[in-house]
Design a protein around this nucleic acid. Structure first.
Lengths: 216, 216
DNA sequence: ACAGATGCTTACTGCCGAGTATAGAGCTTA
DNA sequence: TAAGCTCTATACTCGGCAGTAAGCATCTGT
């Protein structure tokens, strides 16, 4: 990495091989994570052992420790990804032009979609008491941030008249509660697509906030 | 119990003492349960050991086993109580006269109130994977029953025109999700009373279902 | 061909927590 | 005063799981 172009070998082969290794490592790490999150969602974090995860991957437990320092970090990385997706899409939605109702609707739609996928489901099912104190603090901070964004959009909607005046705190808790639970009943192999579920859910929730009805 | 009135002692003293003992035992069992549920809600079921519960009660672990056969039964009894409260009040609400919207609103209000109390919170936080297979089956059956009652009232409301035509399954999941999450944020020592939270929540949710607005 | 890194294995340790064996204290009935 | 029941404690067993030690194979660059 430090001494590329120093040999006559040419940078391409050096980089290719170094890159291959790094990429392969990243893919394996990814495989650990996706296998872990699926098991966590299926059986719960505490009741899933790393031996279970290793077995599902066809490797042994110490292998997992080559990619993650401990079990807690694996869970944290799972919820971090879910929360980051929500946060990122919500931040984007906050920037689009339109009234508060329009921005909030977009936020909720992205939120709902994330909750139909593995890392999102994990967010919905994870109890913060399962995380280490440090990661719990980060987890809570991320949740708070999302809550603030939703509340901000809702309040903006109330202020600009696109949403009914109401207790923003209560309303956001209700909405988030409904969305977080999606992973507890949604079946990807069922009749409804993730998009249909998300849209149906968000339409109902936005009606509850008295949004001006806009079919898009 | 079998031979009362057989001695000259008189039934009163016999019954008093037998009753006292039974009552005392019942109270102790109750104490185990309420202490356990509070710890479960605080730290999570799996991460709470029976030694923790015993310590909080000022006794030792074997004492707990005098009142419950195992840890699983303790958790099951907690969720059973919460679910029974919801089920009972919902069944009552199903019998009152009025249109579907009125009955559904009553159901949700009782549901919400239960979710602000310990056994209700436990229902909201318990992951069915934590229960033994037999108790998990009972737990699911109770949940399904409640779901059916809500869905029935909602459908009745759609049929009688008091609620907007919509996907009943999706709507009930949304509503239940919002209510189940109450225990994750509601603080009994906070500014809002349980009643205020329940009413605010239910008003918002019913608006989402396009109930005819009735301030009661 | 050799040195060192990398990836993974087998075979552990150590701990924690569910559940139990057993005994003793106190109350109840005879 | 003795037998028996209820309740509780001390002091275990046993199993499961997070995390580790140490070694073997393979691949990489010199």
């Amino acid at each position: 990495m430090a001494n590329r172009d120093m040999t006559g070998d040419g940078p391409a082969s050096l980089w290719a091989s170094a890159g291959d290794r790094a990429r392969e490592r990243e893919m394996k790490r990814e495989a650990v994570l996706t296998t872990a999150v699926r098991l966590f969602n299926l059986k719960g974090f505490v009741t899933t052992s790393l031996d279970d995860v290793a077995l599902a991957l066809g490797v042994t437990k110490p292998t997992i420790y080559h990619y993650f320092p401990n079990k807690d970090e694996i869970l944290y990385e799972c919820v971090r990804r879910g929360l980051d997706s929500i946060r990122r899409t919500a931040a984007e939605a906050a920037k689009i032009r339109g009234d508060g109702a329009v921005r909030l609707r977009k936020m909720l739609l992205s939120y709902a979609l994330v909750m139909t996928r593995d890392f999102g489901i994990c967010v919905g099912r994870t109890n913060d008491a399962e995380l280490s104190p440090e990661n719990r603090a980060r987890y809570r901070a991320a949740k708070r941030e999302i809550d603030q964004m939703l509340r901000g959009a809702l309040q903006a909607g109330i202020d600009d008249g696109s949403l009914r005046p109401q207790d923003a705190r209560l309303a956001v808790f209700a909405v988030a509660g409904a969305l977080n639970a999606i992973g507890r009943w949604y079946d990807p192999k069922g009749a409804m697509s993730a998009e249909a579920v998300a849209k149906g859910m968000v339409d109902a929730l936005m009606r509850g906030l008295d949004a001006i009805r806009k079919e898009d």
